[in-house]
Design a protein around this nucleic acid. Structure first.
Lengths: 207, 207
DNA sequence: CTTACCTTGTGAAGAAATTCACAAGCCACC
DNA sequence: GGTGGCTTGTGAATTTCTTCACAAGGTAAG
């Protein structure tokens, strides 16, 4: 199978969300055109995106909402539960730990870490914040799949190195700093400052 | 001036961050190659990105760190203060309101809104949560530039319509739902679920 | 069974973004 | 003031992504 672009995978996630909406309304089939309208793209784009993975539709009819949703869940690897650790118990880390949306999608937060002794041992929700020094040992037992990093920019690379050494194969980075990880580790960075600056640019350079 | 791609603007923001790092270390000049290495891109990419806006470098020497940083701040519109309102006083909204990183960049949070009467009137940090019903009236006086939406997906479009009617020209959406806004309103959506699903895909379809 | 009508899947065309590669310019040293 | 060594700025080539456009295949109705 040829390499799938990042942007394609993002759109697949979106399509899945729309399909789940359609499922709720009891709609049985959907056309590429309808999916495109919902997602602000074109029907050709939708069909191309799907065609990398197979032929899921019926000509003249469209796609079975339920079937296509299941295919997308398979493609995206959402059929299983992923074990997530959050490193950094600041404002954003706390917010994420308590965010219910993740559980629904099969992302289960198994632990929250911090290095600040004043935070270690405190409770949030159902989590007791653990000392980051324990991370490597814990990982041997709990085998987390994904680490979410909500630590200050200056600590981010060191923490990334730590979780990679602990065997984590995917990192979601909220620190405003680009990280380096080995080739076999997946990395995504969410940089909110960048988004705001993008808006600042748009406001400044208005037509 | 020709249309600048979104991805270019993102990279400019990154370059600015790196330049500020270099400023701190006292470095006076920097080559496109050095900037590229820091940002995980290529020197040609850096030069192309900058060339859309002018010639800021000196051949044989590179760029003046301080000068280029100032140019980028001008281009990105970071020379002034932007007035930001946060709508939705849930976990993420709270985290953002307390996040210090925004202030440093000139994004000043002027108000936090929610529609839940139990939240309205409560204090966080220096903010008293206001009733969303007041938003339109407040906006006439406070003239916010940017609205950050941290409301549930189902309410997001209605809230977006509300802030647009109130005159806000830029929206940063954290709700996992695509929004529609008029052409003259800038919109960015940050969808954390999408990022996690991207990691799930990467973990599942590993070589 | 045949006709009229839809919608998919996909090569080919087109657009956009990235990379190449090199002339032009600048500095420093002799 | 000439020479050698760097690094920029930028057209051209390349690669990647998106859109076009249509044959192929399917439904439904008569």
């Amino acid at each position: 199978m040829k390499r799938i672009a990042d942007s394609t995978v993002r759109r697949l996630s979106l399509y899945l969300r729309f399909l789940e909406e359609f499922e709720q309304t009891g709609q049985l089939t959907v056309s590429s055109e309808a999916l495109a309208r919902r997602g602000g793209t074109t029907s050709a784009q939708v069909r191309k995106d799907l065609s990398s993975f197979g032929s899921f539709g019926k000509r003249g009819l469209g796609y079975s909402v339920h079937e296509l949703a299941q295919h997308l869940r398979d493609i995206l690897g959402l059929g299983r539960e992923w074990r997530v650790i959050i490193v950094g118990a600041g404002n954003i880390g706390t917010a994420l730990a308590q965010y219910r949306g993740f559980e629904q999608r099969g992302f289960r937060v198994v632990a929250v870490y911090d290095r600040d002794p004043r935070k270690v041992g405190t409770r949030w929700d159902s989590f007791v914040v653990r000392d980051i020094a324990r991370l490597a040992d814990d990982a041997r037992v709990e085998r987390p799949d994904i680490a979410v990093l909500t630590v200050p920019a200056d600590d981010a690379q060191a923490v990334a190195d730590l979780v990679v050494r602990a065997g984590v194969k995917a990192v979601l980075n909220f620190a405003p700093a680009p990280l380096h990880v080995p080739h076999d580790v997946a990395l995504k960075t969410v940089n909110m400052a960048l988004e705001l600056e993008g808006l600042s640019y748009a406001l400044t350079n208005r037509d």
